[in-house]
Amino acid sequence: MSPRTRKILEFLLNNLVWLMLVVVLALFSALIPNYFQLGIFANIIEASSVLGVMSIGLAIVIITGHMDLSVESVAALSAMAVSILFCSAGIGLGYKLSPEWLMVPVSLAVACAIGALIGFLNGVLVVKLKMSAFIITLASFIWVRGLVLAVSGGRSAQDLAPAIRWFAVERLFGIPLSAWIAIACFLIFSIMMTKTPFGRHLIMIGGNETAAFRAGIPVKRNLIIAFIMAGAIAGLAGWLLSVRTSGATANLGVGLLFNAFAAVVIGGVSLKGGVGALPGVYAGVLLLSAINTAINLMGLPATYTQVIHGLLVLAAVLLDTFKQRLHQRLA
């Protein structure tokens, strides 16, 4: 095999999920009537904003070789906190700030701070007390959701303050600002992971924690920061969720965790840690969203989405193994 074909093959393997996305979009456009419209594509991007943001945090923690199952509940708690503070109906307290735009940074800060706090707790328990991240964050997944139920009393808040709601309404190039926030997050955190020493160190920790420690990288500190980031990003996802739905219900976002997982795995992030990149994760999110939209358009019962997502995850894992074998053969 010539070096050039090898390079091309490797490039395709590394960006397989984008290829899949293009193929799927092309197939759907050809086969499903009314699929090929700008509005549909904008809708795919919009529908993937919350899941996308949440997947970033999850992916970062998985790349460092750990796990954060709590992101879904954290997002729900942040959404509930923002909604209780700034919704005017239901259990909303309807706080007003003047000038009105001040509510945007305040609500964002509240959402991210809640997430960061829970992330910090997860991180300290996992890193300092050396407990299994799977168990610790599973516990957080449960108790944080419990907290959502407790503070809401099972009821919901509606009518989010228009100043915050603005982000879901206002559009730039046909795409709502909330979706642009997700895209911006992918850009920023992709740059962080690939271009800064901090991101590089996280990838190294995921690859070989001992080697990173021996090289003088502050492994524990970096891991805790990764958990804090995952929490804060989940908080941002929660903020987006409350903006999109203009409020919050006690069971808001249930099931998002598994979709986030699917997106991360489909996006090429290895659950063993150390492997994966955020742009791929975004492609994974878009792929899920594209399939959901197709199911809706075809009028299939929405119950099938779960089956298809599950099969997709299976396919992704199979592809990953296949890819690794090919890689070895190429090497």
Partner: peptide
Amino acid sequence: TVYQDLSLCTNVDVVGNFFMGREIT
């Protein structure tokens, strides 16, 4: 220190490993 079991991150490229922990920025 050079350890018996190698201290390389195999998921990162050669340059990254060479500068592990003291990257030029």
